[in-house]
Each structure stands twice: as C-alpha cells, then as structure tokens.
C-alpha cells in the first residue's frame, strides 16, 4: 500500500477546504473499508486521505419534525439495528442486513456505502486502464461481463454496488451535500449519475464536496415496503439483481407505488413506468407478473449476462409479493 498523509478535519467546512480540486490527490475516508481496498489494488493513490471521523455529529441518527436525519458516518450495523428504521422503513434495514459481512457492517458507513466505487473486476484491476479510469476502452463490453449491467449499457458496464441506495430512493430520501459554498439538498435519485454524464464518477459530488447526511421524510414510512435481492453467495457478495418497492395500500388497492431497481445498471434506477402500471390496480399475482415482464422490456444485456433478465423478473415479483404480505 502506498503511504499517504492523513488530514483530520474537525468540521465539514474544514474538510471541504482540505479536499481541494483533484479526486486523485486528496480522497475522503469514512469507514475506510472500500478506500483501503482501492489503495491496496493501486487504483487509488491519494497523497492525503481526509479522515472524517473527527467531525462531531456525523454518526448521529436524529428524529426531526419532518423525518429522520442519518449522518454520513452512521455505521451500517447501527442503522440496520435501529428500531425506528426497522419498523418504519423496513426495506432499508433489510438491504443493510444483506450488505457485506458483520465485520464490514461494524466499520462501513452509510456515506461510504453510497459512495463506494464499483466492483467491476476490470475497474478493480490496476492493469486495465479502462474508461472509468480515464482510458478509452470498457473491457467488460467484450470481456467477462456476467455481473455487469443490462440497462444503460454501452459506455461503461458497471452496476452500482450499493444496495441500500434502492430503498432510500424508494423512500424519497434526500442527500445533503457540503461544499465550500455551504450545504444543499438533492433527491438521492438525482445523486447517482449515468456514465454519459461523467464516466469516471458514479455520483454528482465534486472533488471538494462531501455527502454529509441522508434525510428520510416521515411521509415515506411504510410497512408495505420491501427490499429483495439475489446473490451467488449468502455472505460478502454483491447483488446480481435487486428491487425495492414501497406500496401505499387501501385494502387490496394500490394507491401509490415506488419501484427502484439496483445491480442492473450503472446507477440505481427508479422506474416511473412500473409505478404507473401498479397505481390504481388491485394486488394480484397476475399484475405483478405483468409488471415484471414490463420491467425488462428494453433491457440490453451483454454477451454473458442475459440470465439477469429472467432473474430480475423473479426478483420483482417476489419483492412485490413480500411488500403486500407485510
């Protein structure tokens, strides 16, 4: 591992100042589990690591009048075991409980999970100067692409590795961003970007900006919500396909729906068309099958991952069923 210096800011304002203008030279660290992996693989070689652990209140989960505010440095395990989250936003707790391992969840943070770099093996291999690293080729396009995207393919075939992003988007979460000019809030849905917006990054953060907290509105609390994913391994694995749904039901009638798909594209994707197809309809297996079929229309699988199409359909049907049975 290449040596680095460590900056220990005491405020978010101090942290953004010390970050500067170059992603490569000065990098943020929350829990560090992903960053250290990148440094060991020589795909990140920061001169200065800006450690956020000295900044107070970033580990707080605060109930406000409008909802709950989750600091970027809240540990995954703490959030998954938070009773309020489990009861009111169950899909979020479900997603986190399936993330990584107990050891990683005790160190990994909310902000770090949402901002982790992709798991594409060409990206993670220093010998491949891929388009995400400033090169001109995506090696997955013609290569080993069984774990890659089936939507928004073409430029870069990664899938976004965060599974908790899905439920957070389904719950209309906001991201608060600290920049040198101050703070701003954006919908988490708009926080993640496609490769055509910036192939080298997965979100809108600039080099001197920090995701400081996540806000979930009270209005999105819903027991009829669910996160469902499939993986090859039961532990320490990333999803092959994932779905988050949140349904507002009146008896058997779906009054409102949120559907977000993850691990199938370079960003988590909210599907307004599926939400519209569910809204105003009565809960039924037939409806869920129709929606699942609709979801994969327009998919552009790569040479080795068309299995994800059938898998995604099953995941969507199961997720919808579990949400209505809750």
């Amino acid at each position: 591992m290449k040596s680095f210096k460590m900056a220990m800011p005491k405020t978010l304002e101090g942290a953004v100042k010390v970050l500067g203008f170059d992603f490569e030279k000065r990098q943020l660290m929350a829990g560090g589990t992903d960053l250290l992996g990148c440094v060991k693989e020589h795909i990140a070689e920061p001169e200065v690591v800006v450690n956020l652990k000295g900044i107070p209140h970033l580990t707080d989960v605060v109930k406000t009048e409008t909802g709950v505010e989750i600091g970027a440095l809240v540990k995954l395990d703490d959030l998954a075991n938070n009773k309020e989250i489990q009861q009111r936003w169950p899909a979020l707790a479900q997603a986190i409980a399936q993330t990584a391992t107990p050891q990683i969840r005790n160190v990994g943070t909310v902000g770090g999970n949402l901002c982790q770099r992709p798991r594409c093996w060409y990206y993670r291999d220093e010998n491949y100067h891929c388009s995400k690293k400033g090169g001109s080729t995506c090696y997955a396009l013609e290569g080993e692409n069984e774990y890659h995207a089936i939507f928004e393919t073409g430029l870069c075939q990664i899938v976004h590795p965060s599974n908790m992003a899905g439920p957070l988007i389904a719950y209309d979460a906001l991201a608060e961003i600290q920049s040198p000019q101050g703070t701003r809030q954006v919908r988490l849905e708009k926080f993640f970007i496609s490769p055509d917006m910036n192939i080298e990054r997965e979100n809108i953060l600039k080099p001197n900006e920090i995701l400081s907290k996540i806000l979930i509105p009270n209005s999105s609390a819903n027991k009829n919500s669910c996160y469902y994913e499939t993986r090859e391994k039961q532990s320490f694995d990333w999803a092959l396909c994932g779905t988050s749904v949140s349904l507002k039901l009146n008896g058997k009638m779906i009054q409102e729906a949120r559907v977000v798909l993850n691990a199938i594209a370079p960003r988590p994707i909210r599907r307004l068309d599926l939400e519209a197809a569910l809204t105003g309809k009565k809960v039924s297996k037939r409806l869920f099958k129709k929606v699942a079929d609709m979801a994969v229309q327009g998919a552009t699988p790569l040479s080795k991952n068309s299995y994800k199409i059938e898998l995604l359909k099953v995941v969507i049907e199961r997720c919808l069923s579990e949400a209505t049975e809750a």
Partner: peptide
C-alpha cells in the same frame, strides 16, 4: 488548506 485565500477564523486542519 490547498486553496489560497484563508481568513484567520478558518480551521487549520491537522495533517499527519
């Protein structure tokens, strides 16, 4: 910090 302008109130960040 790497940026130039800094007033006296601004936090100096410890770098190890």
């Amino acid at each position: 910090p790497p940026q130039t302008a800094s007033s006296q109130n601004e936090e100096e960040v410890l770098i190890l």
